[in-house]
Simulated scan of single mutants.
Amino acid sequence: MAKMTFTPADDWVDEVWGKVGTPERDEMEARIKEEAQAYYIGKAIKDERLKQHLTQEELGAKIGVKKSQISKLESGKCVITLPTMSKVFKALGFGSASLDLGVGGKVTLW
């Protein structure tokens, strides 16, 4: 019987994305972080829209975009801009929002 060898996942990630600290790895990790943020914002939009019993079309009509744009935002398939985020959350009834910068304090977004 042939002997099996296993490659640790960290070694495979280093081989595919480059070693930690290299420009390739930094770029990949930044892209993954950006995609994760888009996903969580999209999930928050979808959860609130469903809580309010709105369709994607109805939310889109409130902010002047098509249903397909709302679908893309909710699925995290596009990075949401601050002006668009403001329109969406205002349409969902969030009158204000702030960004917590940790030691830098909080910044009011709208």
Rank of each mutant, 00 (worst) to 15 (best):
K77F: 06
V107M: 14
V88S: 01
L99E: 13
K66R: 11
G93S: 01
G60K: 00
K43F: 15
V103D: 15
K62T: 08
K3G: 09
P23W: 03
K66Y: 14
I70F: 00
K87D: 15
D100E: 09
L59E: 13
Q37E: 12
D10C: 03
E35W: 07
Q56V: 01
S68H: 08
T7R: 08
A97Y: 03
P8T: 03
I32Y: 09
A2N: 14
I41G: 07
D26M: 04
E48Q: 06
L59G: 13
D10I: 06
M1Y: 14
L82C: 09
K67P: 01
E24Y: 03
E58T: 08
L109I: 15
S68Q: 14
T22A: 11
G93E: 05
K106W: 07
E29P: 02
K87N: 13
F89P: 06
L82V: 15
K3W: 12
M28A: 13
Q56R: 15
S96N: 09
E58N: 08
Q52S: 06
A2L: 09
E35K: 09
K46W: 14
M4P: 11
D47N: 05
L92W: 01
M1S: 14
K19L: 05
G60C: 00
K3V: 11
P8Q: 10
I80C: 04
D47V: 07
E57D: 14
L59P: 10
M1K: 04
W12D: 03
H53L: 12
V103Q: 14
G60P: 04
G105K: 08
D26C: 04
K19I: 12
L54T: 01
I41K: 07
P83M: 01
L59H: 08
E74V: 02
D100T: 15
Q52V: 01
T55H: 05
K90R: 09
K72F: 09
K106I: 14
G105C: 08
D11S: 10
D11H: 06
K90F: 04
E34M: 09
E48C: 12
E74G: 03
H53I: 03
D47Y: 08
A38M: 07
Q56P: 10
K106R: 14
Q69W: 10
L50K: 05
E34K: 10
V13Q: 02
S98T: 13
K66L: 13
D47M: 02
A91N: 06
R49H: 11
K77H: 15
D100S: 10
E15S: 08
G42F: 04
E34S: 09
K46D: 10
K87E: 14
M85W: 06
I63L: 00
G64F: 00
W17D: 11
A36I: 07
W12E: 14
D26H: 05
G104H: 14
W17V: 07
L82M: 13
E48S: 05
R25P: 09
E57K: 13
V16S: 02
E57M: 05
T81Q: 08
K67N: 11
G95C: 02
G64W: 00
G21A: 04
A97W: 07
E34I: 03
K66P: 01
A2G: 05
D11T: 12
A91E: 03
M1E: 05
S75W: 00
V103S: 12
G21K: 06
G42D: 01
D100H: 12
G60L: 00
V79I: 07
G105S: 07
S96G: 06
